[in-house]
Design a protein around this nucleic acid. Structure first.
Lengths: 196, 196
DNA sequence: TAAATAAATCTAACAATGTTAGGCAAATTT
DNA sequence: AAATTTGCCTAACATTGTTAGATTTATTTA
């Protein structure tokens, strides 16, 4: 009687379909275009079915956000494994963070609260990328840097990068060269300031 | 027959009361706590009355945001008038920007889109503070700097400051010393990099 | 296999919230 | 004083999140 398995598999599949549908709608129409009825339409069920898989709409957002943080983490981790020089690694990681934001703009919005409710502090998966950066920053710094100082440097990086991403998302975009300039300047500047 | 005046004055007063009520509610309950019925309750009218003064809820948000940008502008302008040294002026202005964000957190959210729909690009009053900064930055830079470069420097400042503000708003706050450290470092760093 | 049970899914509705229609009453004008 | 305009209200509609309860389908039991 392997029906249990099949049923569980189907349940899991529907759950996935809900998340996929939700994010598909969001990519097409933005976060304010998302509602439960559209998700239901998309998966060809009625709205109440969604509530057998998620307790409410927020639970869906949370789950989507989790997946976003995991994806970001994986992209960063791969860089870490493929670049040996710590400074290069650090710069590449922030550039990857930057690219992630624009390749997955709606995801970034919900992850970091850009014109959208923020889930950063509500999903533990957000820690993953944070730890990754802390580690790399510590490797760039000489000696055995104090954890608080490393943290401070992380937020120095994060502030510029996130700030620049934000203004690009809510505004008209600053133009490619201007962004690159500001970004490289800032990241390069902080790296220089911590390396010795 | 001065009744026209009185009527206009009363209309204007109600309009003001609506804006005040709205922002009072927001300060007490956050942006998601704001709705038309609560505003109506607060001004002791029924909801439809609000629509005689504002075409919809967004128009209220927009008007509140306008006032926010004007307030920020005035605070910055006063600093400009009272500090002669350009570098000091610039640093003081960004510190004022920072302080404004935390003294008027909900206002900042709607002005710059932190966990809230953003009105930055939709109200012309936002230009005022921008121009003010551009002017001051140009004064700190030697010679007659290119407008594009000045703009770039503005966004360098803005990115760090806004990024740091954002993370403090959406997160648990980094703690006073850490914030001060990052902020002073960043602002000082950019000033140093542009002054000669 | 037929009855009993459980699971899946639906219809219908409720509550909150933005918004509008239409009516009554007060104020103003003629 | 009559006519008109204005101010304000009640009632309702639409959208959207969510839940209750019926119904149908699938599974288990006898």
């Amino acid at each position: 009687m392997g029906s249990k398995d099949r049923i569980l598999r189907q349940k899991e599949e529907t759950r996935c379909k809900i998340l996929d549908a939700a994010y598909r709608i969001v990519k097409a129409e933005g976060w304010q275009g998302l509602n439960m009825r559209k998700i239901a339409d998309d998966i060809e069920y009625t709205p109440p079915v969604i509530y057998e898989h998620f307790s409410n709409k927020d639970a869906i957002l949370k789950e989507i956000t989790k997946k976003g943080f995991l994806q970001l983490y994986n992209e960063l981790k791969e860089l870490k494994e493929n670049i040996s020089d710590p400074e290069e690694q650090l710069e590449a990681m922030w550039m990857a963070f930057w690219n992630f934001a624009f390749k997955n703009m709606e995801m970034y919005q919900v992850m970091f609260g850009v014109e959208m409710t923020c889930w950063l502090m509500k999903v533990p998966e957000a820690e993953l990328q944070y730890e990754l950066f802390l580690e790399t920053i510590a490797r760039v710094m000489p000696g055995e840097p104090d954890a608080e100082v490393v943290k401070q440097k992380y937020f120095s990086f994060f502030s510029v990068v996130h700030g620049l991403i934000s203004i690009n998302i809510v505004g008209d975009g600053l133009g490619g060269e201007m962004n690159t300039h500001i970004l490289k300047d800032a990241i390069g500047g902080i790296i220089r300031s911590i390396r010795s």
